[in-house]
Nucleic acid binder design. Sequence first.
DNA 1: TGTACGCTCTTGTATATACAAGCTTGGTTG
DNA 2: CAACCAAGCTTGTATATACAAGAGCGTACA
Lengths: 245, 245
Amino acid sequence: MSSQISSTTTGASSQPRYAAIKAHICAQIESGEWPAHFRVPSENQLAQDFNVSRMTARRALSELTDEGVLMRSQGLGTFVAEPVPAGSLLEVRNIADEVAARGHSYGNRILKLEQTTASTEVAVALGLAEGAAVYHSIIVHLDNGLPIQFEERYTNPTLVPEYLQQDFSAATPNEYLTRVAPLTEADTTVEAIGADGAVAEALEIDSGSACLQIWRRTMSRAGTVSFARLVHPGNRYRLGAQLRF
Amino acid sequence: MSSQISSTTTGASSQPRYAAIKAHICAQIESGEWPAHFRVPSENQLAQDFNVSRMTARRALSELTDEGVLMRSQGLGTFVAEPVPAGSLLEVRNIADEVAARGHSYGNRILKLEQTTASTEVAVALGLAEGAAVYHSIIVHLDNGLPIQFEERYTNPTLVPEYLQQDFSAATPNEYLTRVAPLTEADTTVEAIGADGAVAEALEIDSGSACLQIWRRTMSRAGTVSFARLVHPGNRYRLGAQLRF
DNA sequence: TGTACGCTCTTGTATATACAAGCTTGGTTG
DNA sequence: CAACCAAGCTTGTATATACAAGAGCGTACA
């Protein structure tokens, strides 16, 4: 009895107790048990259910609220928020982190990793001469095994000479590049396209179905590092932004 | 003395005490007094300086850490983080201005302008009761006679009672709303969809062809003003953003 | 000399408690 | 019947306390 007293400390499971409560709530939501606008148990109720203090239960609810999973309002209660936008227009985030933040498992498939010569378009984007050597990679990113991003990337070999030797199953190109060449600037363009043959096949969707296509040119102090085309299936991805004036 | 005892409660300034600490830290950083990697006073130090408990000082530091302003590491201390990506790059622009900026002629077609009752989704977005009266408008915007945006908008009648009487062929809803209820905040979500029947017809494109769909909730001081769905033909529109770090 | 231990500082987790403040509900009162 | 008020829920703020765990430093010991 009184596990409450016998383990005032961090607990046996090596994981904070509020994390267990967060996990439980996320599980209910993801399983569909708790739909949007569902009223989540109160702080006191959770405290009792999990045998923790109200402040600990509160922390779980507060963090999930900060993460956009829940909505709270004083006097009313805590509710499941509308499904959250996955990405952000305002920051350049690592897709693996985004997947992990949703509590899903990340994976990828490397379709191409080679050196080639720059086409006119690529040369202009990277600030190189036409026909110059560039690195070319195509990677498909998976969320719980489901393809959510087709990444085709051209990288400037003069700035990142060891790009081709990287193990991108361990760290995404984004992750590697931001470490090697910290980015100082980025141009982003978003448009909607119908998936063409290669992309449709890689993303396992019907040819012609709507996709969000993001063009992004990332620049470091020394020059333009990389030029990427990111394609997301329209129904598996959203971009969100909160603006304040 | 002992302001600690005389105001255990929320305090005189109507603003939480941890907010004052956050403000102080931000001020030091913005003034350049505390540069990047500067070591911020410890929780105990701040608690003493501001005459609050350690947990309150801690909250200020934790929130600033979540916001990316500070970095913490156990055993070492709390430090000022590197400058963060700048703020509002994605602005809410008036479509008529965008067309004019391209040197094209702007036009529109008003398909619907009516009062109706709020569905669950609309009620939640506008912060109204389900079934409450809302204004509903559907307008197609033209660039040189070519449809480039399908705008379906729900507007809160309590905040903008004269919405239905406006002449939207002269000023777009966006233009009118920003004049009547200056916006303080906006949530934006971007996704790719295939055009369905009504949208495809209005935009004069094939049904099922890829479109960029933007959901935008605009808020004024008094509350949520308007909830709009903007659909652009994928091949006639792009969204751009330049980020600087 | 050099390593290992312990002290002390830091942040991190957890509890118990108190009161403030927002919303709903139900009863009482005019 | 309507208006008001109080009780009882909710979340929000604040405190005091305890122990855990990571990092750095100096001292004592081999």
